[in-house]
């Protein structure tokens, strides 16, 4: 057993959703050994109700569960633009199930019993992806909240124009441009123009 992963590298919450108590408990025990704290749920509804699904994180989903199938949980998460990364861990998976899962954006797909190390690797990757996705979602939300005038000014800013040129292009006062510009910086949570451009890139990606 290699030592590299015996760290608390994962900075996002990890959830385990499985109807089988022994599987939940044993997974938690094992991942605890890798210093990964997990929150376990016995079913899809409980997970959707309690977990912070709009925050970055990683969820290990069983596919066959009595109340809500793993695939259904995945569909709901996608629908509400959750940044959570999904890893499937199923007792009886097949190729078509795996293909469907990956197409719907799952990070990984495992069959029980799973090797702990591979699972931890997948969790690490999933956590990173979730963080990126979370940032993207954040930028997108900011971008979508822009007014028409702010949007126009943003486009001109990205082209590298100065405030005076923008004011001339849009036939408005330089002061007005400055007000909108500071509002833009606030909305994107950016301190410099470079940060603003980065956020814009994330948003339109």
């Amino acid at each position: 057993m290699s030592q590299e992963f015996v760290t608390g590298l994962v900075s996002v919450p990890v959830y385990v959703v499985d109807d089988d108590e022994s599987v939940r408990d044993s997974l938690a025990f094992m991942l605890d050994g890798y210093d990964i704290n997990v929150t376990t749920y016995a079913g899809g509804p409980a997970f959707l109700d309690d977990a912070e699904i709009m925050q970055p994180g990683c969820v290990i989903l069983d596919s066959r569960m009595p109340e809500l199938r793993g695939q259904d949980v995945q569909a709901i998460l996608t629908q509400c633009h959750s940044p959570l990364s999904i890893i499937f861990l199923t007792g009886h998976g097949d190729v078509s199930m795996a293909v469907d899962a990956f197409k719907s954006g799952a990070v990984d797909f495992f069959q029980k019993p799973v090797d702990g190390e591979k699972l931890v690797q997948a969790i690490t990757i999933a956590a990173e992806k979730s963080l990126v996705r979370s940032e993207q979602l954040c930028a997108l939300l900011s971008y979508q909240s822009l007014t028409e005038r702010e949007h126009d000014i943003l486009l001109l800013l990205v082209q590298g124009k100065r405030n005076q040129q923008i004011a001339d292009d849009l036939c408005i006062a330089v002061r007005t441009v400055e007000v909108h510009r500071s509002s833009l910086m606030k909305k994107f949570n950016a301190k410099t123009i470079a940060e603003l451009v980065l956020q814009y890139g994330l948003a339109i990606n």
């Binding site: 089988d20 044993s26 019993p113 090797d115």
Partner: peptide, 13 residues
């Protein structure tokens, strides 16, 4: 499979 998976997890942990 279920108990086997659990056993593997416990033993690895």
């Amino acid at each position: 499979n279920q108990p086997l998976a659990a056993i593997l997890n416990y033993s690895q942990g």
